[in-house]
């Protein structure tokens, strides 16, 4: 199943790329990867990528932050040292709740934002000393690269891709 060679087809236009992706999908070829210099809207749908669940994780991270803030204010202000500071009621958490709202809000945002971004970095495998994996430096400038694994059908694939407007087609060893 694992192929040792892949086709790299280059495009210079996002709309041509979209049509090419659709054509390749219509021919039931597996698209290994598409590298783009900017987000091409609708490309993920055309490729058939599953939607990302990062927003859902952010929601749960936010809940975690809110719970942490509630626990912290309650433990420190109500349980551990229930002092009278300026006449504020410290008998129960709810009585002094309005003063905790800013903290609860900020911690919700803090947890949701940072943990989601960290999740994104982990899932997409990007971090400071990570080596870039785009096969061609032009893909961060103005070229779009479609990578398709080859299974002894090089001629057929090349013909298909050149029909879709690829400006350059290379067959390379899979790295």
């Amino acid at each position: 199943m694992e192929s040792s060679k892949v086709i790299h087809a280059f495009y210079t236009d996002d709309e041509v790329l979209m049509d090419a992706v659709k054509a390749v999908k219509a021919e039931h070829h597996h698209i290994e990867e598409v590298f783009c210099p900017f987000p091409v809207h609708g490309l993920d749908k055309a490729m058939g990528l599953a939607p990302t669940r990062l927003a859902i994780t952010a929601f749960f991270y936010g809940i975690t932050g809110l719970s942490f803030a509630i626990w912290m204010t309650n433990y420190m202000m109500i349980q551990d040292w229930p002092q009278d500071i300026g006449g504020k009621p410290s008998f129960s958490w709810l009585e002094n709740m309005p003063a905790f709202v800013p903290i609860m809000f900020e911690l919700t945002v803090f947890f949701a934002a940072h943990l989601m971004v960290i999740t994104f970095y982990m899932r997409s495998r990007i971090w400071p000393f990570k080596e870039a994996e785009n096969p061609d430096p032009r893909t961060t400038d103005d070229h779009f690269l479609m990578e398709i694994p080859v299974h002894n059908n090089e001629a057929e694939l090349t013909a298909l891709l050149s029909k879709t407007g690829a400006v350059e087609i290379n067959i390379v060893d899979k790295h």
């Binding site: 990867e33 598409v34 590298f35 783009c36 210099p37 900017f38 987000p39 091409v40 490309l43 993920d44 490729m47 990528l49 939607p51 990302t52 990062l54 927003a55 989601m116 971004v117 994104f120 970095y121 899932r123 997409s124 495998r125 990007i126 971090w127 400071p128 000393f129 990570k130 080596e131 870039a132 994996e133 785009n134 893909t139 961060t140």
Partner: peptide, 17 residues
């Protein structure tokens, strides 16, 4: 650049983030 490679999946996540 943290090894950004511009994959379709990366862009999808990037936009959602």
């Amino acid at each position: 650049s943290f090894g950004w490679s511009g994959r379709a999946k990366d862009w999808q996540r990037f936009e959602e983030v």
